[in-house]
């Protein structure tokens, strides 16, 4: 009996420690303010729509009026190759109509701002791909039957291009135009479609491993499972530089299979996150019917 008591006294604390449902408190995760840049410049266009924003702590107030960094509120200064950009209070973006982006040229973005009383700086360099990329205009796609006619885009490459990004937008996306008879996802209803409509509406396909230093033409067949709606489609094709590629491939892939996070490839130095990249852009449209 004495031995049994000793045994129980020894084992009880272990049993006590072995129970429970531990909590996770993320309030102790360290937050650092950063300058968030969304800056794309395109060959043969002026500098426009450069967004300079801030990040914010998870769980804090998302005040859209305070999201964008302005010269007035944050002492924000934005230059490209030393030339200052102007701020448009209507669109809350920075621009400069006197800077015409040229293929093959290098551009340096420098930003400084004050966030939460802290002075931050960041910079990034992008080199625009060489002249050459375009979608071949004789291959206008027109109207195509769903899952019976392939969607093939023919294009010429540009030297200095690291990625060809095909941004596929269903312009008539809605719960009623969704293709419920698709062969890939069964048992889907309008509630599921409404909940995830943006994921179905906007699809991307990227090519990054072709030899851009040739005069050959390339074709890309759009994957059949990227078409989810009947109606009008617009594909914008970007021949992007290394920053474009690095940001596209890594910015959304910071969470690993086991929930752990890692850093994306840093396109901006210093206190910046986001993207400053350049591209040559072209567009094609078509319709999908039954």
């Amino acid at each position: 009996m004495k031995t049994l008591k000793i045994f129980i006294i020894i084992i009880l604390p272990f049993l006590f420690l072995n129970c429970g449902d531990p909590n996770v408190d993320l309030n102790s995760v360290t937050y650092e303010p950063k300058i968030a840049v969304e800056g794309y410049i395109y060959a043969n266009q002026t500098v426009a729509n450069i967004k300079i924003m801030r990040n914010y702590r998870l769980g804090s107030d998302v005040n859209l009026n305070k999201l964008y960094l302005t010269p007035e509120d944050n002492s924000t200064s934005v230059t490209i190759n030393g030339t200052a950009l102007q701020f448009d209070p209507l669109t809350k973006t920075y621009y400069n109509n006197s800077i015409l982006v040229e293929p093959g040229k290098t551009y340096t973005l420098e930003v400084s701002a004050v966030i939460d009383g802290k002075k931050l700086q960041t910079e990034s360099v992008t080199t625009v791909p060489q002249k050459g990329f375009s979608i071949l205009s004789e291959h206008v796609l027109g109207t195509l039957k769903y899952n019976q006619e392939p969607i093939v885009i023919t294009y010429t490459p540009s030297a200095g291009t690291e990625i060809y990004l095909f941004s596929i937008l269903a312009r008539d996306a809605s719960v009623s135009s969704f293709i419920y008879t698709n062969p890939y996802v069964t048992n889907i209803d309008s509630v599921d479609v409404r909940k995830n409509i943006n994921d179905y509406k906007m699809q991307y396909q990227a090519v990054s491993e072709i030899n851009s230093n040739t005069t050959s033409t390339y074709t890309l067949k759009i994957d059949a499972f990227r078409i989810w709606f009947y109606g009008s489609y617009r594909i914008a094709v970007y021949a992007g530089d290394i920053n474009f590629k690095n940001y596209f491939f890594t910015s959304n892939n910071v969470e690993e299979d086991d929930g752990n996070f890692h850093e994306p490839i840093q396109v901006l130095k210093g206190d910046g996150i986001g993207v400053f990249a350049s591209a040559i852009k072209d567009t094609i449209v078509f319709n999908i019917i039954k």
Partner: peptide, 26 residues
């Protein structure tokens, strides 16, 4: 582990508006 510390509003592609929250205007 490495936990997420902040969020920022930069789209994945120039004309994209991904990761939006259904029904919300942000």
């Amino acid at each position: 582990i490495t936990a997420p510390a902040s969020a920022y509003q930069v789209s994945t592609v120039p004309d994209g508006n991904d990761n939006t929250i259904p029904g919300e205007n942000i």
